[in-house]
Amino acid sequence: MNETVSFGYQDVAPAEKTQRVGDVFRNVASRYDLMNDAMSGGMHRLWKDRFVSRVKPRAGEQILDMAGGTGDIAFRLARSGASITVADINPAMLEVGMDRAQQRGLDGLVWTEANAETLSFPDRFFDAYTIAFGIRNVTDIPAALREAHRVLRRGGRFFCLEFSTVTWPGFKDVYDAYSHRLVPKLGKLLADDEDSYRYLIESIRRFPNMPAFRQMIADAGFAQTRVEPIMGGLVAIHSGWKI
């Protein structure tokens, strides 16, 4: 692992990034879903629906939803009858998710505090591993990808939904202006936290582009890797199989 890693546009020590990312998500946990709606115009709901449709969860499967915090992906996966374990490094995000599950009458989910880089689950335990809008906040992304590969059974599948690099020229300029100028202001207005949302936007800019991240997934041991851009790469679904 490098001596420094990115925290938004800053380069910091790995331990400092882990701590500061934890602070960000503690600050935004109670308003996280509201802000997702505000930042994406509600589009994140459609992206998550498409993501889960690509996972194709099935009854009886064991699925790990990493960085699953508020439960958005887990609730969708659970409709299939699969057994879902929701893992997140941040207890504040898990608390929001557990409260939301209780309100929905969903008592079959397993909630656990876990670091994506050092999972406590045994080898070859899960049929699928999902992570949505979480991988860019991990301190050591290659380590997290290796752990994802380790805990999957042979034939298991990895799916990641994440913001990426916009490739549509005109849209790219509009999105850059919107995200850098308006999103932090929305954070201030809706969550009284401009700095956290500035970090979230900066972290998108520092995340590897689609070909580079696809190669990182392959380097972790996954085969048949794919990337599906959405809205010109505003977000992307990356996937791979353990064979």
Rank of each mutant, 00 (worst) to 15 (best):
D140T: 12
W241P: 04
Y175M: 12
K56S: 13
M1L: 13
T130A: 10
T225M: 08
S80I: 00
W111C: 07
A15W: 06
A101Y: 02
I230D: 11
M216P: 05
G69I: 02
R150G: 02
I135H: 02
N137D: 11
I89S: 14
M35V: 10
D49G: 09
Y32I: 02
A92R: 05
L145Y: 11
T130H: 04
A92G: 14
F171Q: 10
K48S: 01
F133G: 10
R146N: 08
L234C: 08
R26D: 15
D33W: 02
G69P: 04
D33Y: 01
Q102Y: 07
R104W: 06
A236L: 07
L190P: 14
V86W: 02
F51P: 04
V174F: 15
A87V: 12
N36K: 06
P142Q: 01
Y178W: 03
K56V: 12
N209W: 11
K242F: 09
G60K: 10
Q224C: 04
S120T: 15
P184V: 01
M216G: 03
G170I: 04
G41N: 12
L64R: 00
G97K: 09
E113T: 13
M98E: 14
G8T: 05
G155L: 02
A191Y: 07
S196W: 08
M231P: 05
D72L: 01
G155P: 00
R157K: 15
V55S: 06
I237Y: 10
L190D: 11
F75Y: 12
W168T: 05
P14T: 08
I243G: 09
G170L: 05
G22A: 13
T4C: 11
L200T: 07
S53V: 06
R26M: 06
P91S: 09
L64P: 01
Y175N: 06
R214I: 00
L152N: 07
T167C: 05
E202T: 01
D88M: 12
G221E: 03
D219I: 13
R198L: 14
N137R: 07
P229R: 09
N36L: 03
A223C: 13
V5R: 12
Y197K: 09
L64H: 03
L106W: 04
H238P: 06
F207R: 08
A87P: 12
S196Q: 06
A38C: 01
T167L: 06
R153P: 01
A144T: 03
E202D: 08
M43F: 15
L119Q: 00
R58K: 15
G105I: 08
I141Q: 01
V12T: 10
R181F: 03
R206I: 00
H149P: 04
K17A: 08
R205A: 15
D195T: 12
K172S: 14
E61M: 00
D176R: 13
A74W: 04
G60E: 12
W241N: 11
A15F: 05
V12C: 08
P14L: 13
K56D: 09
K48R: 02
N2R: 15
A82S: 03
G187Y: 03
A101P: 05
Q102G: 10
V52L: 03
D37K: 07
F121K: 02
N137E: 13
K172W: 09
D219R: 15
R181T: 04
F7N: 04
N27D: 14
G60T: 12
Q10K: 12
A144W: 06
Q102K: 15
S30W: 11
